[in-house]
């Protein structure tokens, strides 16, 4: 980490739709991708993030600032993450998980993955397909076969309501 002493260093990040964002280096280095750039001394000017659009990057930066303001308290960090993700729709979540993956931010990646998984939990196959826009490319026979293949998994296990 280049400059830990003196005045806090600010980095400028550029989204793939050419929006510029200022963010404290201490918060930005939550991203291993950015941290590596800083450590290699490539963070002097503008850091271009080719895989992240402005809307998503703004959201990620909000998260970076929010989470880095919380001292080392896993409980508080978790509740911040929960709150931060609570009102995001799937499209936003999907953009964020892509951004988190690209920026190599494991805490955000894990939290968003868990959030998406939570949305899918206990839902019927049809509901998930519809909600996530998954095209069913099975033939009816194939689908029936896959269902049959995993039927054993549910033996003796109560079914969940599909809603």
């Amino acid at each position: 980490m280049a400059a830990e002493t003196g005045t806090p260093t600010t980095l400028t990040l550029k989204s793939n739709d050419d929006e510029l964002f200022s963010v404290a280096e201490s918060a930005a280095i939550l991203s291993v991708t950015i941290r590596n750039m800083v450590e290699d001394g490539c963070a002097g000017g503008v850091i271009p993030l080719d895989n992240v659009d402005g809307k998503t990057l703004a959201s990620v930066i909000t998260y970076m600032n929010g989470i880095s303001a919380i001292p080392a308290d896993e409980e508080k960090k978790k509740s911040y993450r929960d709150k931060f993700l609570s009102d995001k729709d799937f499209e936003t979540l999907a953009d964020m998980v892509l951004a988190a993956n690209y920026l190599n931010m494991s805490c955000l990646m894990d939290a968003v993955s868990a959030k998406i998984a939570q949305v899918m939990e206990k839902k019927s196959v049809g509901w998930v397909r519809r909600k996530f826009g998954i095209e069913n490319d099975y033939t009816p026979e194939e689908e029936a076969a896959v269902k049959e293949e995993h039927k054993w998994t549910f033996e003796g296990v109560e079914t969940d309501d599909d809603n």
């Binding site: 729709d89 799937f90 499209e91 999907a94 953009d95 206990k122 019927s124 196959v125 049809g126 509901w127 519809r130 909600k131 996530f132 826009g133 998954i134 095209e135 269902k147 049959e148 995993h150 039927k151 549910f154 079914t159 969940d160 599909d162 809603n163």
Partner: peptide, 26 residues
């Protein structure tokens, strides 16, 4: 999740229009 229970999908009556966007993103 009992697959047999899914023969009738309750969500067919729920026409949400987010599918198009979702389709691309997934």
């Amino acid at each position: 999740m009992e697959m047999n229970k899914h023969k009738v999908d309750p969500d067919t009556q729920n026409p949400r229009k987010r599918m198009k966007k979702g389709e691309r993103i997934i």
